[in-house]
Write a protein that binds this DNA or RNA. Structure first.
Length: 573
RNA sequence: CGGGGCGUAGCGCAGCCCGGUAGCGCGCCUGCUUUGGGAGCAGGAUGUCGGAGGUUCAAAUCCUCUCGCCCCGACCA
């Protein structure tokens, strides 16, 4: 493709709207343009990257035995009502109605639609297992779309759904998808890590997320470098703390702590470390029910773990009004001692403490030397807090570490959650009617493009991994002579004939402009053709990422470049 | 939805307090010179100042309402 004839509107300055690197670079490199919040057009260069990713995904899904199909984006409310997700999915579901006032929605995911197809068309164990996938635009009315294409309201996703006879088979299918995902992200040239994850709105038994490692990632992941344990922080387990020598209990003591509501304020006032303090968090766990959770002052509560322990789907910190109704102290001074009609859960790190500080259940008062059992009773002890670096590993390694990542894939073992609700059954060899065991598997295709940039860029622009670069070679004719023009034209033709994807910067621009644009676009190799080099019978080849330069004669260039590109693609595959 | 900020030329911004002519840099167009890391000179085009209403002789500027966008928190590929 020739730059002079392409729509590649690069920008010299950073657009004001973009904070995040990938968003900024995609705008500057002319890959995307915004239409509305969280809604973008893909320009030719951006689309090429998307197509590259789709191709890799498609090849690996096919290799794993999945079959491609295409389900409608628009679906009627009926199906969603069958699984209760019409209500449960909430405001994130884009809803609309047709001229007859019938309810429809734009698909945020397709369990219902694909399960409906399955129950109509599949009836025998002979047809199982089957895995179906599609690559399609999805719609989610995000609370806060942000980071450009990374969290859009409209985005491109590969979603796959599997149906097996039994748990054994479902497990095998899950594993083959897990393996396919590893191949996909490896082939894309990304550094990633699969982690154990929470199942969220999709529901189901177990799941893994695939995280592209990047410091700018939204997700915090926790891993144990000694074993292979890795999990999303939402999910990450923490080993119980060692039970040390208990200090002998000291008598309870009231102290005045005027206006000291936060852990920091209390610690500063009493001159103790936050680990000696225990926070009493009050959660609304029912219409008229409050649960207290005790967490050490230097720890953070993990609401997902609490929800799972209680077996509920919604949890929020109690409002100040509710706190006032259930306790005798304002927020900040609530403590476990003397609480009425509230069950108390204690994090395992709190359970091993003695003589700790708690709120006094009256304004401006805290209590010193509190002890479980002696001063108050707890209903249960558990793992209720967020893992952090240095915590004990649940798998016996030395300790947990943390890293940041971007979620680009998520796989779920669903069990029979959808098949039972929707009657997606098959007959087994004995003629028994059984619900299919399902799995679902998503990849954020457009997000993966952004994640690749977050992981592969420098201060000048993008540094694409070869397999997903919009082009493989960028030829810059850097002086305007006829000789240079002809040489670049020749090389362009020859490389293209060898099946190499070449972008030829044939604009009447000065060298500097071309160099800067090339660095911005981030195509892996720049071929620099100028009078200076040609006079010595050499052309320069620059590796965008490493900056390494090679000087080669024009005669050898075509062959050398072709071989280099092919080699780079094979290493990844 | 809560908190913070912003809408002025394609992009980045100034002007707004203190009302009176819409401006700067980059980009764009024409010509000449230049040409290996964002060229120089000369000439030129481009604005419903986000929208609606109000105050005023006069509004980008003051007031009211509204729409949109960005950033920080609770959701997710």
């Amino acid at each position: 493709m020739r730059v002079s004839q392409s729509l590649i509107p690069t920008m010299r300055q950073d657009p004001g709207e973009a904070e995040v690197v990938s968003h900024r670079l995609m705008l500057r490199a002319g890959m995307i343009r915004k239409v509305a919040a969280g809604i973008y057009s893909y320009l030719p260069l951006g689309l090429r990257v998307i197509r590259k990713i789709e191709t890799i995904v498609r090849e690996e899904m096919n290799r794993a035995g999945a079959q491609e199909l295409l389900l409608p984006i628009l679906s009627s409310a009926e199906l969603w009502k069958e699984t209760d997700r019409w209500d449960f999915y909430g405001k994130e579901l884009f809803r609309l109605h047709d001229r007859h006032e019938r309810d429809f929605c734009l698909g945020p995911t397709h369990e219902e639609v694909v399960t409906d197809l399955f129950r109509r068309e599949v009836s025998s164990y002979r047809q199982l297992p089957v895995t179906l996938y599609q690559i399609q635009t999805k719609f989610r009315d995000e609370i806060r779309p942000r980071f450009g294409i990374m969290r859009g309201r409209e985005f491109i996703m590969k979603d796959a759904y599997s149906f097996d006879q039994d748990a054994e088979g479902a497990k095998r299918t899950y594993q083959s998808m897990y393996d396919a995902y590893c191949r996909i992200f490896s082939r894309m040239g990304l550094e990633f890590r699969p982690v154990e994850a929470d199942t969220g709105l999709i529901g189901g038994i177990s799941s893994h997320e695939f995280m592209v490692l990047a410091n700018t990632g939204e997700e915090l992941i926790v891993f144990d470098p000694d074993t292979h344990y890795a999990a999303n922080v939402e999910r990450a387990e923490i080993a119980p703390p060692p039970i040390g020598e208990r200090e002998p209990p000291l008598p309870l003591e009231k102290v005045s702590t005027p206006n000291a509501k936060s852990v920091e304020e209390v610690c500063a006032l009493l001159n103790v470390p936050p680990s000696h303090l225990v926070k009493t968090l009050l959660y609304q766990t029912g219409p008229d029910e409050i649960t207290a959770v005790l967490i050490r002052g230097d720890h953070q509560a993990n609401e997902i773990k609490i929800q799972r322990h209680l077996g509920i789907h919604e949890l929020s910190l109690a409002t100040p009004e509710l706190v006032a109704r259930f306790t005798t102290a304002p927020v900040g001074f609530v403590g476990p001692i003397g609480l009425q009609k509230i069950r108390i859960l204690a994090d395992q790190a709190v359970a091993v403490l003695s003589n700790f500080i708690v709120g006094g259940n009256e304004p401006d008062v805290h209590l010193l030397h509190a002890n479980i059992d002696r001063d108050f009773a707890i209903e249960s002890i558990g793992d209720f807090r967020q893992a952090q670096a240095g915590d004990p590993s649940p798998r016996g390694g030395r300790s947990l570490q943390t890293a940041r990542g971007i979620e680009v894939g998520h796989i779920f073992m669903l069990g029979t959650k959808y098949s039972e609700k929707m009657g997606a059954t098959y007959l087994d060899a004995q003629g028994q009617k059984l619900p299919a065991m399902m799995g679902c598997y998503g990849i954020g295709v457009s997000r993966a493009a952004a994640a690749a940039i977050e992981q592969n860029h420098d201060d000048k622009g993008i540094c694409w991994p070869m397999p997903i670069a919009p082009f493989q070679i960028h030829i810059l004719s850097v002086t305007a002579s006829e000789k240079v023009r002809q040489a670049s034209e020749q090389l362009y033709q020859n490389l293209s004939q060898n099946g190499i994807e070449v972008l030829l910067d044939d604009r009447e621009e000065r060298g500097g402009v071309k160099f800067n644009d090339a660095d911005l676009l981030g195509i892996p190799f720049h071929i620099i053709l100028g009078d200076k080099g040609l006079a010595q019978n050499t052309i320069e080849i620059k590796d965008r990422k490493t900056g390494e330069k090679y000087h080669i004669s024009p005669e050898e260039a075509c062959e050398w470049i072709t071989a280099t590109v092919k080699a780079k693609l094979e290493i990844q595959a």
